[in-house]
């Protein structure tokens, strides 16, 4: 099997671990330390931020415009609305600026 398939299967095993793990492990504790809880709460935003921040730093004008507009739309609309608006701004920007 290729490396890609192994990575996918290992990723799947780790994902399943998160979905049973809370029930198996976290429910054993009466109380989680508040600092651990605060750290856990921060995990998704912290990880996902690193996946777009460097791209933003190196981006051109169409990409920056798309991210700003998408970020503003996300304050009001859902994920779908922000995503389609951002994509539209990006495509239009690249068409105009190249």
């Amino acid at each position: 099997m290729s490396t890609t398939v192994w990575i996918i299967l290992a990723g799947a095993a780790m994902t399943y671990l998160t979905r049973v793990g809370g029930h198996l492990v976290l429910s054993q504790f009466q109380r989680i330390h508040p600092r651990v809880q605060a750290g856990l709460d921060a995990v998704p935003a912290a990880v996902l931020t690193t996946l777009f921040a460097p791209a933003l730093f190196n981006a051109g004008w169409p990409e920056l415009a798309a991210m700003i507009v998408a970020g503003l739309v996300a304050l009001r609309g859902g994920l779908m609305a922000m995503f389609t608006t951002g994509a539209a701004v990006l495509i239009a920007g690249r068409y105009l600026i190249g």
């Binding site: 998704p44 996946l51 777009f52 998408a70 994920l79 922000m82 068409y95």
Partner: peptide, 23 residues
């Protein structure tokens, strides 16, 4: 031209925004 290479950063930004109610 259709922005496929930059759709993921937009998508990740959207996910980050969706967590904004967290402390």
């Amino acid at each position: 031209a259709i922005g496929l290479d930059f759709l993921l950063p937009i998508y990740f930004l959207g996910l980050v925004m969706s967590f904004r109610a967290r402390p």
